[in-house]
Design a protein around this nucleic acid. Structure first.
Lengths: 214, 214
DNA sequence: GAAAGTTAAACAATCGTTTAATTTAAACGA
DNA sequence: TCGTTTAAATTAAACGATTGTTTAACTTTC
């Protein structure tokens, strides 16, 4: 399903407003006004407000399975692959942060009649990819077997989201200011922190100096 | 400001509905119905819907500075204090998870005219307590100096929230079922995972076998 | 009998959606 | 290139339902 220019503009505005004010906090009139179109066009193109949300998620959460598979085939040791994988995940989530914010809020909203099947399927896909990498590292004796693999997801994504949703707070704490700086901070310091976290977890209480078989 | 029985019941219902359906997704009629009171009582007692949210946050996010200070005075080494501190934070957040969920969503909502000053002040208080503990451990040579201390907060809280908001997903992944099991899982496995994460970060690339001075 | 509590009803405003009329654009045979 | 046809796009207006809040009358409590 392709989108014409006007449909794309509507989705763009809707994404921004949904992420900022929530789905229920955004009116179709607001969307129409900011997108410079008539209210009726939303029903005309998408059917309803909820179907607009459906379409938004459909177009924004397209898979990045392929990118993850490329990382798996990377040369370099397990640690390096973990670094690349974490950077890939965080970069990806950050780029589509608004769509993911909408999902993660509306997902647990019982009155929302939206299909999250795509979202869940992709989440499971991505998890199994991570699991594969970790278990391979464990077999090679590089990673600790004590780590709770499913909980790595909340550790990676949760750290990002909590930072980003409270960026105002951390801006004050770090003395950061302006949009560009937060962007830089995510792409350098935050990613490095999460990489460090995962690697630390994976080697916690591991014997040191062992020869790492790739 | 004390609450009578009816006011407390209203707050109770409002907290549940706000957390489940969001502030904008909850109507005052819905609250009145579930709390078995007349609509007008909400305005009568709290003034408006937004002031109801104000009152909710005020009564739910009361400080736990005192508990944290107790942990700091604990006997035991730095590692033990970190364990206790993480457990305290997660337990506390988990107990008031609904109020915190409302805050963390509404906090970044620009159209919400609610004072988050209390929330921010407390957050800064808690951070400085954590910072104190970590720095003390670093001076003692027990903790690595490479760790980004402010980002420990997203790592701890973000891991919890992402797990809890996606608990449906993890229930399917773990084969958990029922409410009691999630409760147990948080209080045992999840807390242990977060403790492990923080400790791993704090000792990442630290020399081993060093005598730990308390 | 004064104050506090409680109620049903009404308020204007806004909600998402639909209607019916009109304009625009493309396709058509001549 | 012409007028005609057809479908898509766009509009203003109206729909009924629901929103948060207020009113004014009534009951309870002390």
């Amino acid at each position: 399903m392709e989108l014409n220019e006007k449909q794309a503009a509507i989705l763009e505005v809707a994404e921004k407003l949904f992420a900022e004010n929530g789905f229920d906090g955004t009116s179709v009139r607001q969307i129409a006004r900011e997108a410079n179109i008539n209210i009726a066009m939303i029903s005309y193109y998408f059917g309803s407000k909820e179907k607009l949300l459906d379409a938004l998620l459909y177009h924004r959460l397209a898979g990045f399975r392929h990118e993850m598979e490329k990382v798996m085939l990377d040369k370099g040791d397990h640690m390096h692959k973990v670094d690349r994988m974490v950077a890939l995940i965080v970069t990806r989530i950050h780029r589509n942060r608004r769509a993911y914010k909408v999902v993660s809020f509306e997902y647990s909203n019982p009155s929302r009649q939206v299909s999250f099947e795509n979202y869940i399927r992709r989440k499971k896909d991505n998890y199994s990819m991570i699991e594969k990498l970790i278990k391979s590292g464990q077999k090679a004796g590089v990673f600790s077997k004590k780590v709770n693999i499913p909980l790595l997801i909340p550790t990676i994504l949760g750290t990002y989201f909590h930072f980003y949703n409270h960026r105002k707070f951390f801006e004050a704490l770090h003395g950061l200011d302006g949009k560009q700086t937060v962007e830089d901070y995510v792409n350098t310091t935050l990613i490095r922190h999460i990489q460090q976290t995962v690697k630390a977890l994976l080697t916690y209480e591991m014997p040191r100096g062992k020869s790492q078989i790739n």
